[in-house]
């Protein structure tokens, strides 16, 4: 699981920096609220789902940076599209780094917002040590979920990976 976590973190940072010009920092807060969610399933030598949860201001920030739009030009359609594309890029980037010799099949991303957002499962999270370095919490060998919250000046994002059923 540690390889999955480290690889996924690297992919999250890379996608946000290259595509959205946003530099994320891990957050160590509980019960953070989010406004929308995109999910994408993957299948191959590793199976599961990645979910991206965003606050509205993070989604708007991403769109403004990527497309150069003003805030009043951002429509709900663009927010949905951009959130789904972020999930697609993080998932594809992660799987390519996880094993570039294997082919993975990705689903078409889904999008929900408001009350339709699925609850974040009760799972172990990364904790930040006093020195500011990331520590991976001890995780039971059968633990297949992982979640981490990130923030920047422009909002918050959480990424959840569920690899239940992986081979």
């Amino acid at each position: 699981m540690k390889k999955i976590q480290e690889t996924l973190k690297f992919s999250i940072f890379e996608v946000f920096e290259k595509m959205f010009y946003i530099f994320l920092e891990p957050l160590d807060e509980e019960n953070i609220g989010y406004d929308m969610e995109a999910g994408i399933r993957f299948d191959g030598c590793l199976k599961g789902e990645i979910r991206i949860l965003l606050s509205k201001d993070m989604a708007e920030n991403m769109i403004q940076n990527m497309l150069g739009l003003e805030k009043d030009e951002i429509t709900s359609q663009i927010i949905e599209d951009c959130t789904k594309e972020a999930a697609n890029m993080i998932c594809g980037n992660f799987l390519g780094k996880y094993d570039s010799t294997k082919v993975f099949n990705l689903s078409i991303p889904t999008f929900v917002q408001g009350r339709s957002i699925r609850p974040v499962p009760k799972i172990l999270k990364d904790k930040i040590s006093e020195s500011g370095e990331m520590n991976i919490t001890d995780i039971a060998t059968d633990e297949k979920d992982w979640c981490m919250d990130f923030g920047s000046d422009g909002g918050r994002v959480a990424v959840i990976i569920d690899t239940k059923g992986s081979v």
Partner: peptide, 24 residues
């Protein structure tokens, strides 16, 4: 986003002239 070596080989075998991985 799909940048596995096999996928890229398939793409070029099918006649693609270039391949760009997201994020770019």
């Amino acid at each position: 986003t799909e940048g596995s070596k096999e996928r890229m080989r398939d793409a070029f075998n099918l006649g693609a002239k270039g391949f760009i991985k997201k994020p770019f």
